[in-house]
C-alpha cells in the first residue's frame, strides 16, 4: 500500500512539466526515504534524477519498495486536471496495475480521483558516484534560461567555461557568434539574484543547447540553478525543489574528434 499526500500539489505538476518532453516513460520508485525517478532521454545523452523526500510529504506511507512505470505524457494529462492550489495524493496497491491521483481543493469542497494504468518499463538504473567538481556555479535560474534560449538562436552548442573571472557561455553558428559572461556578484538584498562561483580549477565543456533548453523547463521550481562541472564529465544542472528535494539533469559533454 502506498499513500503520499503532497499539500503543495503544484510542485508535482511543475516536476512533470519539467521532464515530460525529455523523457517519455519512466519508473517512479517509492521507498521509505522518498519518491524518486531516474530516467534517460530517448537518445541516451541526458539523464534526469528526481527526489522528493518522504519528510516533505504531509502523509507518507510506503509499506514496501514499489516501482511504478508511468507514461509521463499521460501522467501530465492527469495532473493538469489538478488545480494549482490542490492537495495531491498518490495512491497505489502493492502489485496493482494502476495508480490513483486524488486532488482536493484547499477548502475541501471538491475531491477528484484519476486512475492511471501503469506500464512495465525495462529501464537501466545507473549508479551515479559522488564526485568532487572542478567548478560549481550557482546563478538565478531565469538568467540561465535566458542565456540558453538566446544562444540557441545563434548556434546549436554552447561552450561553458568557468575561470576566476566568471562563467562564460559561448556559441557560434552560420550568422555569427556570441559570448555571455556572468561575473560573481553578491546581492545583499536577495540571495536568489546572486551568481556565486566556486572553482578549484578552470573547466571548459561543450554541450548541445537543445538539452540545456529542455532542462530549463524546471525554472519554475526554483529561483536558482546550480551547474556542477568537471573536465570531460557530464554537467549536473540542479534545481532544488522547495523543502522537499531536487531535480538533477546530467548531460554528457560533446568531445572534439
Amino acid at each position: 500500500m502506498l499513500e503520499l499526500r503532497l499539500v503543495q500539489g503544484s510542485l508535482l505538476k511543475k516536476v512533470l512539466d519539467a521532464i515530460k518532453d525529455l523523457v517519455t516513460d519512466a519508473n517512479f520508485d517509492c521507498s521509505e526515504s522518498g519518491f524518486s525517478l531516474q530516467a534517460m532521454d530517448s537518445s541516451h545523452v541526458a539523464l534526469v534524477a528526481l527526489l522528493l523526500r518522504s519528510d516533505g510529504f504531509e502523509h507518507y506511507r510506503c509499506d514496501r519498495n514499489l516501482s511504478m512505470g508511468m507514461n509521463l505524457t499521460n501522467m501530465s494529462k492527469m495532473l493538469k486536471c489538478a488545480g494549482n492550489d490542490d492537495i495531491i495524493t498518490i495512491k497505489a496497491d502493492d502489485g496493482g496495475d494502476s495508480v490513483t491521483f486524488m486532488f482536493e481543493s484547499p477548502s475541501q469542497d471538491k475531491v477528484s480521483d484519476f486512475e492511471m494504468k501503469l506500464m512495465d518499463i525495462d529501464s537501466e538504473h545507473l549508479g551515479i558516484p559522488e564526485t568532487e567538481y572542478h567548478a560549481i556555479v550557482k546563478m538565478p535560474s531565469a538568467e540561465f534560461a535566458r542565456i540558453c534560449r538566446d544562444l540557441s538562436t545563434i548556434g546549436d552548442t554552447v561552450v561553458i567555461s568557468v575561470s576566476k573571472d566568471g562563467v562564460k557561455f559561448s556559441t557560434s553558428g552560420d550568422i555569427g557568434s556570441a559570448n555571455v559572461v556572468c561575473r560573481q556578484n553578491n546581492s545583499v538584498d536577495n540571495k536568489d539574484n546572486e551568481t556565486v562561483i566556486e572553482m578549484n580549477e578552470p573547466v571548459s565543456l561543450t554541450f548541445a543547447l537543445r538539452y540545456l533548453n529542455s532542462f530549463t523547463k524546471a525554472t519554475t521550481l526554483s529561483n536558482t540553478v546550480t551547474l556542477s562541472m568537471s573536465k570531460e564529465l557530464p554537467v549536473v544542472v540542479e534545481y532544488k525543489i522547495a523543502e522537499i528535494g531536487h531535480i538533477r539533469f546530467y548531460l554528457a559533454p560533446k568531445i572534439e574528434d
Partner: peptide, 14 residues
C-alpha cells in the same frame, strides 16, 4: 566536428 557521448557511458549500470 564533435562527438556526443552517451550519458550511460559515464556511470555504472546496476
Amino acid at each position: 566536428s564533435s562527438q556526443q557521448r552517451s550519458i550511460a557511458s559515464f556511470f555504472e549500470s546496476g
